[in-house]
Structure formats: structure tokens, C-alpha cells
Amino acid sequence: MNKTFAFIVQLILLLIICKLGYYLADLLHLPIPGNVIGMILLFILLQTKVLKVEWIELTSGFLVKHLAFFFIPISISLMTMGWLFIDFGLPLALTLGVSLIFGFIVAAWTVQKLSHRGEVNQHDSAHHNL
């Protein structure tokens, strides 16, 4: 199958699941965003073998790989928030920086200490690569 065609079909499939997620969140008044419902929906479809992972692998792999790209325009919006940094720059930097550093250390340390070291190593991970 033509790769570009497959990419577009898979993208449309992801868009439909996403829309369905928003629809369900709205219909059931869920306190969870529609795109997360869409993600859970896709996981269920994969787990129940309704969808094969090969059917959406190409586009989803591309989107996940370049996820950072989709955040760039949002970070450009920081250019309109000069006032925020002028008014609260230093306290904000302190709050975000310190909380981030400790969050990282606690999350990573907890996982590393609780899993038996070396069990989840490169050998094991080789079977689970994308």
C-alpha cells in the first residue's frame, strides 16, 4: 500500500477516535478531557483486537516521535506573556524550577528503588521497543 495514503487513512482514523472521545466525554459528562477518553478508547480497541496495532502504527509512531513539534506554537504564545514574567518572573522561576527538580528526583528514585535493579535492563527492553 502507498505509504502516504496509509498515513492519511491512519490519521483520519485517529481523528475519528479523538472526536468520538470528545463526544463521549460530553455525552456522559465525564470530568476527563475528550482526547484522554480517545486515548483510552484506542487502548481498549487495541486490547480487544478490534484494531490491529499495524493499522495505526505508521501515523501514531510519527505523531509520538514528533510530539514536541506540536508544542512549539503553544510556547510561541509565551511572547504575549511578557507581563507575567515582568510581574512574577523570579518567584515563578523559583516555584517552577524547585518543584520540578524535586518531582523528578522523587519520581525517578522511587521507581528505581522499588524495581529490582537491573531487571528492567536493556536486554529486557529490547523486546518492548517501539
Binding site: 480517545g38 484506542l42 509520538v64
Partner: peptide, 9 residues
């Protein structure tokens, strides 16, 4: 939106 959904993979 679809990129978030794709995280299910």
C-alpha cells in the same frame, strides 16, 4: 488531539 490519542500505541 490525534497525537494524544496516538499515545495509546
Amino acid at each position: 488531539g490525534p497525537a494524544t490519542v496516538a499515545l495509546a500505541v
